[in-house]
Amino acid sequence: MTTTTLQVRKNQIAQTRWQAVADVPLAQGQIRVEVELFALTANNITYAAMGDAMRYWDFYPSGDAEWGIIPVWGFATVIESLHGEVPVGERLYGYWPTSNRAVLQPDRVTPLGFSDAAPHRAELHAVYNQYVRTTTDAFHTSGTESTQALLRPLFVTSWLIDDFLDDNAFFGASTLLLSSASSKTAYGTAFQLAQRKGIQIVGLTSDGNKDFCKSLGCYSQVLGYGELDQLAADTPCVYLDFAGNGQLRTQIHEHFAQLKYSCAIGATHVESLRGAKGLPGPTPTMFFAPAQVKKRNKDWGAAELGQRMVTAWQAFTAKATDPAQPWMTVEHQSGQAALEKAYTRMLSGRSDPAVGQTFSLT
């Protein structure tokens, strides 16, 4: 058997290549899975753009210092096992390489799942090392795996952003500015924020996506990137930067004299990334979802945190997939050419926000 993987050049992520490697025999305690379905979203572009800074390249090393493998979220089935507690046929949700297969080393196995104990992942954040058995997964619903692959990791981040802001009393602001408002993580955050009293949610987006953002109904106001002057400069506000557009960040920091907090979340505008030094107002701070998970695990316990997320997830997906007015339709494609084309299109910012894309390489 052969494992085929999409790789991108770390310092020029528009460059891609495919690498095919013959599978080697498993070591005792390892399993081999077939990655059957995964999503490609703007979140994956952030993984590539922030690959070095946030160590996303380290989860699945390519073996070549110049090339990296972008992690993706989705579903896989165990096809070989030398681990007594994880049998062949077990279906798992988790964090996979952009590949048709992967090898894991299960540890701390429970009825719910396990963590990957591969030595190279020992220092990486535990949240990304968790693999969940679909048979006991409270998030899992049969027949909706594409929706789960597309929205689940993004919505978990959205939920944690909302929780982080509430936990910090919104830094004394009642107006929140969300860039890249058409992205799934942004509108998932807006969906949660819209349930808070007294909060104004302003979606910032390209002119072409304004109608889509307005149709969602979770933004108090939708503005084009060139319409910041419609908001008073003395508005106490928080900026949630899902785009990573340095020029826009500068404009916001210069326009709003009462910017209370600047939260860096994504990097979808790869062509506009730049540093944050010398900006007026608060220093942009990177939001790291696992840190909020760790805090809430301590505050509430893992079971309570999980239940709160599942309840919110069910409400969100019911709205996002409402047959009468879905926020997203799913397009599934197979093969290397389809994935590479979609990646290139997403990198250039030309993807349709109303379409969610899933893939398989098998």
Rank of each mutant, 00 (worst) to 15 (best):
A233D: 15
I201R: 14
D162Q: 14
I265W: 01
Q258L: 12
P236W: 15
D207T: 12
K214L: 13
N245C: 02
L150R: 02
C218R: 07
Y239K: 02
A186C: 10
R249P: 02
T175Q: 04
D167S: 11
G246Q: 10
S174I: 10
I199R: 06
L160D: 00
T141F: 07
A257R: 09
R196G: 06
G246W: 14
S215Y: 04
T185E: 01
F155M: 05
D163R: 08
L165I: 11
V222Y: 06
A264Q: 10
S180Q: 06
N245R: 05
L165R: 03
C237L: 06
L176Q: 08
S206M: 05
S215H: 04
L228G: 04
Q195P: 05
S183V: 13
F155H: 08
T144Q: 15
S183L: 13
G172I: 04
S146G: 06
V202F: 12
Y187V: 11
G217A: 04
A243L: 00
Y239F: 15
I161S: 01
H140P: 00
K260W: 11
G198M: 07
V156C: 09
G226N: 07
Q192E: 15
G244D: 08
L240H: 01
Q200S: 09
T144N: 14
I201P: 04
A190V: 05
I252T: 00
G203Y: 12
L154F: 00
S142F: 11
F170D: 14
A190S: 03
G224T: 11
Q221C: 05
Y219A: 13
G226E: 05
K214I: 10
L228A: 07
S220C: 09
G198R: 02
L240M: 08
F170I: 00
K210V: 14
A243E: 04
V202G: 03
F212G: 09
S215W: 00
T144Y: 12
V156R: 00
L259P: 01
Q195H: 08
T144M: 13
W159I: 04
E145I: 01
A257C: 02
G203N: 02
S179K: 00
T189Q: 09
D241Y: 06
L165Q: 09
P236N: 13
S179T: 15
T175F: 15
C213A: 15
C213K: 04
N209S: 13
E145A: 02
Y187P: 01
N168S: 10
T250V: 00
E254D: 13
F212T: 08
L176H: 06
D162N: 10
D162W: 00
Q247I: 10
Y239A: 07
S146I: 02
T141I: 00
Y261P: 04
C237Q: 13
A257Q: 15
N209Y: 07
F191D: 15
T147W: 06
S182T: 12
S220F: 11
N168Y: 09
T185P: 01
D167V: 01
A264V: 13
I265S: 03
C263I: 11
G244N: 08
S182K: 07
D166Q: 12
L231M: 08
C213P: 00
I265K: 01
N209D: 11
N168G: 10
L204Q: 03
S183Y: 12
A194E: 12
T157Q: 04
T175Y: 14
G143K: 10
C213V: 15
G198D: 13
K184D: 02
D166L: 01
G208V: 13
G143S: 09
V202M: 08
F212W: 04
Q251I: 05
L223M: 09
L228M: 08
A233H: 11
G266A: 11
